[in-house]
Simulated scan of single mutants.
Amino acid sequence: MPLTANAPRTVLGAGALIALQGLAALVFTVVLLVEGLGGGGALGTRTVLGEVAYFAVFTGGVVACASGLFLGRTWARGPSIVLEVLVAGAAWYAIGPSGRPEIGVPVAVVAVAALVLLFHPRTTLWAHGDEGSD
């Protein structure tokens, strides 16, 4: 049973990749929260809690993009493209200047795959209101 009747599979695929990123961001946020509450001084704890709040808001945005794509909402394509460009930039930084290709390469592969799906001709037609896109 499809999640939505009017979104092509490319949109659902991009939504799945972005949902995977949202899950990873949620896990990171929870780990950061647990580590922040587990130790450190008062200033350190406040700083970590601020980071947790930032990542929680960011994770909410990622999940909103994935949900919008799964539900066939055309508004989700634009923010998803911006998100993936930012993630690709972060992956590039991890691969190059940070010297962490074991983190950057998989993140880059997922980001580029999502961008390919988001710019696929079917996705573009769907975003422009063509109902017969799938």
Rank of each mutant, 00 (worst) to 15 (best):
M1W: 04
M1F: 09
T4V: 12
T4F: 03
N6L: 03
N6W: 00
N6I: 03
T10S: 14
V11R: 00
G15P: 07
G15R: 08
A16G: 04
L20D: 00
L26Q: 06
V27L: 10
V27K: 07
F28Y: 14
F28P: 09
T29P: 03
V30P: 01
V31K: 09
L32Q: 07
G39K: 00
A42D: 07
R46C: 04
R46D: 00
E51K: 13
Y54H: 04
F55W: 11
C65M: 13
A66Q: 02
G68F: 05
G72A: 01
T74E: 11
R77G: 02
G78V: 10
P79A: 12
P79M: 10
S80H: 02
V82P: 04
E84C: 09
V87C: 07
A88W: 12
A90F: 14
W92G: 14
Y93L: 13
I95P: 03
G104N: 05
V105P: 10
P106L: 06
A108I: 08
V110C: 10
V112A: 14
L115F: 15
V116E: 07
V116Q: 12
L118V: 08
P121G: 13
T123Q: 14
W126H: 05
H128K: 11
E131I: 00
E131R: 02
S133Q: 01
S133M: 01
D134C: 01
